[in-house]
Amino acid sequence: MNNEFEWRSQIKKLGESVEPANDLWSGIAARIALEQARPAAAQRRWSRAVAAIAATFVIATGASLMALRVDRSVPPSSVPASTTQPAVATTPADAAPTAFDWAQPSDPKLAAAAHDLDQAGADLQAALDAHPDAVFLVSMINRTNSQRMRLMRQSAISG
Protein backbone atom coordinates (compact mmCIF):
# COMPACT_ATOMS: atom_id res chain seq x y z
CA MET A 1 0.00 0.00 0.00
CA ASN A 2 2.33 2.64 -1.18
CA ASN A 3 -0.06 5.47 -1.61
CA GLU A 4 -2.39 7.18 0.77
CA PHE A 5 -5.45 6.71 -1.42
CA GLU A 6 -5.04 2.96 -1.63
CA TRP A 7 -4.47 2.73 2.09
CA ARG A 8 -7.54 4.80 2.87
CA SER A 9 -9.75 2.72 0.65
CA GLN A 10 -8.43 -0.44 2.25
CA ILE A 11 -8.91 0.77 5.80
CA LYS A 12 -12.41 1.96 4.92
CA LYS A 13 -13.22 -1.63 3.96
CA LEU A 14 -12.58 -2.66 7.56
CA GLY A 15 -15.89 -0.98 8.38
CA GLU A 16 -17.95 -3.91 7.22
CA SER A 17 -20.55 -5.66 9.34
CA VAL A 18 -19.31 -8.52 11.49
CA GLU A 19 -21.90 -10.91 12.85
CA PRO A 20 -21.12 -12.10 16.39
CA ALA A 21 -20.00 -15.73 16.62
CA ASN A 22 -22.77 -16.43 19.14
CA ASP A 23 -26.43 -15.51 18.99
CA LEU A 24 -26.72 -12.80 21.62
CA TRP A 25 -30.49 -12.48 21.46
CA SER A 26 -31.36 -14.94 24.23
CA GLY A 27 -29.07 -13.07 26.65
CA ILE A 28 -30.50 -9.72 25.62
CA ALA A 29 -34.10 -10.93 25.97
CA ALA A 30 -33.35 -12.40 29.40
CA ARG A 31 -31.81 -9.16 30.63
CA ILE A 32 -34.69 -7.08 29.32
CA ALA A 33 -37.18 -9.40 31.01
CA LEU A 34 -35.26 -9.07 34.27
CA GLU A 35 -35.13 -5.28 34.01
CA GLN A 36 -38.85 -5.15 33.32
CA ALA A 37 -39.69 -7.37 36.28
CA ARG A 38 -37.46 -5.59 38.80
CA PRO A 39 -38.97 -2.09 38.81
CA ALA A 40 -42.52 -3.48 38.82
CA ALA A 41 -41.84 -5.60 41.91
CA ALA A 42 -40.05 -2.74 43.67
CA GLN A 43 -42.91 -0.38 42.85
CA ARG A 44 -45.45 -2.84 44.24
CA ARG A 45 -43.49 -3.14 47.50
CA TRP A 46 -43.16 0.64 47.86
CA SER A 47 -46.82 1.21 47.01
CA ARG A 48 -47.78 -1.11 49.84
CA ALA A 49 -45.39 0.65 52.21
CA VAL A 50 -46.71 4.09 51.27
CA ALA A 51 -50.30 2.87 51.66
CA ALA A 52 -49.41 1.44 55.05
CA ILE A 53 -47.82 4.71 56.13
CA ALA A 54 -50.86 6.70 55.01
CA ALA A 55 -53.18 4.27 56.76
CA THR A 56 -51.12 4.51 59.93
CA PHE A 57 -51.46 8.28 60.00
CA VAL A 58 -55.21 8.16 59.48
CA ILE A 59 -55.73 5.42 62.05
CA ALA A 60 -53.35 7.00 64.52
CA THR A 61 -55.24 10.27 64.31
CA GLY A 62 -58.56 8.52 64.76
CA ALA A 63 -57.30 6.42 67.65
CA SER A 64 -55.81 9.48 69.34
CA LEU A 65 -59.09 11.35 69.11
CA MET A 66 -60.94 8.34 70.48
CA ALA A 67 -58.40 7.96 73.28
CA LEU A 68 -58.72 11.64 74.12
CA ARG A 69 -62.46 11.30 74.54
CA VAL A 70 -62.08 8.25 76.80
CA ASP A 71 -59.28 9.94 78.78
CA ARG A 72 -61.60 12.79 79.65
CA SER A 73 -64.36 10.49 80.88
CA VAL A 74 -62.21 8.11 83.00
CA PRO A 75 -60.01 9.19 85.96
CA PRO A 76 -56.31 8.27 85.50
CA SER A 77 -56.23 6.23 88.72
CA SER A 78 -58.67 3.71 87.25
CA VAL A 79 -56.18 2.50 84.61
CA PRO A 80 -55.35 -1.12 85.53
CA ALA A 81 -51.70 -1.82 86.28
CA SER A 82 -51.89 -5.04 84.28
CA THR A 83 -52.11 -3.23 80.92
CA THR A 84 -48.38 -3.07 80.56
CA GLN A 85 -47.35 -3.33 76.95
CA PRO A 86 -44.12 -4.21 75.14
CA ALA A 87 -41.43 -1.58 74.76
CA VAL A 88 -41.25 0.39 71.54
CA ALA A 89 -38.82 -1.12 69.03
CA THR A 90 -35.64 0.80 68.40
CA THR A 91 -34.21 -1.43 65.73
CA PRO A 92 -35.76 -3.87 63.27
CA ALA A 93 -34.21 -6.69 65.29
CA ASP A 94 -36.17 -5.77 68.41
CA ALA A 95 -38.94 -8.22 69.08
CA ALA A 96 -41.95 -5.91 68.76
CA PRO A 97 -45.24 -7.75 69.02
CA THR A 98 -46.70 -8.76 65.71
CA ALA A 99 -50.32 -8.39 64.71
CA PHE A 100 -50.90 -11.85 66.13
CA ASP A 101 -49.45 -10.97 69.54
CA TRP A 102 -51.73 -8.01 70.25
CA ALA A 103 -54.93 -8.72 72.12
CA GLN A 104 -58.10 -7.64 70.34
CA PRO A 105 -60.32 -5.00 72.02
CA SER A 106 -63.86 -6.00 72.82
CA ASP A 107 -65.32 -2.65 71.67
CA PRO A 108 -66.21 -3.14 67.97
CA LYS A 109 -65.05 0.41 67.06
CA LEU A 110 -61.71 -0.08 68.77
CA ALA A 111 -61.44 -3.59 67.31
CA ALA A 112 -61.82 -2.20 63.78
CA ALA A 113 -59.14 0.43 64.43
CA ALA A 114 -56.91 -2.25 65.98
CA HIS A 115 -57.33 -4.45 62.92
CA ASP A 116 -56.34 -1.60 60.61
CA LEU A 117 -53.36 -0.73 62.77
CA ASP A 118 -52.24 -4.38 62.79
CA GLN A 119 -52.53 -4.52 59.02
CA ALA A 120 -50.55 -1.31 58.64
CA GLY A 121 -47.90 -2.68 61.03
CA ALA A 122 -47.62 -5.91 59.04
CA ASP A 123 -47.26 -3.99 55.76
CA LEU A 124 -44.63 -1.73 57.27
CA GLN A 125 -42.74 -4.74 58.57
CA ALA A 126 -42.83 -6.35 55.11
CA ALA A 127 -41.54 -3.12 53.58
CA LEU A 128 -38.76 -3.01 56.16
CA ASP A 129 -37.82 -6.61 55.41
CA ALA A 130 -37.51 -5.65 51.76
CA HIS A 131 -35.57 -2.46 52.52
CA PRO A 132 -33.66 -2.98 55.79
CA ASP A 133 -31.87 0.36 55.34
CA ALA A 134 -35.07 2.42 55.35
CA VAL A 135 -34.74 3.97 58.82
CA PHE A 136 -37.96 5.95 58.48
CA LEU A 137 -39.87 2.65 58.32
CA VAL A 138 -38.53 1.75 61.79
CA SER A 139 -39.90 4.99 63.20
CA MET A 140 -43.22 4.34 61.46
CA ILE A 141 -43.39 0.86 63.02
CA ASN A 142 -42.61 2.35 66.42
CA ARG A 143 -45.36 4.91 65.98
CA THR A 144 -47.81 2.22 64.91
CA ASN A 145 -46.90 0.09 67.93
CA SER A 146 -47.27 3.09 70.19
CA GLN A 147 -50.75 3.81 68.80
CA ARG A 148 -51.69 0.15 69.16
CA MET A 149 -50.54 0.24 72.77
CA ARG A 150 -52.68 3.29 73.50
CA LEU A 151 -55.61 1.56 71.87
CA MET A 152 -55.20 -1.43 74.20
CA ARG A 153 -54.98 0.87 77.18
CA GLN A 154 -58.21 2.59 76.20
CA SER A 155 -59.82 -0.78 75.63
CA ALA A 156 -58.86 -1.86 79.14
CA ILE A 157 -60.17 1.42 80.59
CA SER A 158 -63.47 1.30 78.77
CA GLY A 159 -63.80 -2.30 79.89
Binding site: S17, V18, E19, W25
Partner: peptide, 12 residues
Protein backbone atom coordinates in the same frame (compact mmCIF):
# COMPACT_ATOMS: atom_id res chain seq x y z
CA UNK B 1 -34.36 -4.88 14.82
CA UNK B 2 -31.60 -6.80 16.61
CA UNK B 3 -31.26 -9.36 13.80
CA UNK B 4 -31.19 -6.62 11.20
CA UNK B 5 -28.57 -4.39 12.80
CA UNK B 6 -26.45 -6.57 15.08
CA UNK B 7 -23.71 -7.09 12.47
CA UNK B 8 -23.01 -3.40 12.02
CA UNK B 9 -23.11 -2.60 15.73
CA UNK B 10 -20.98 -5.59 16.66
CA UNK B 11 -18.50 -4.84 13.86
CA UNK B 12 -17.92 -1.29 15.10
Amino acid sequence: LYRKHVGRVHGA
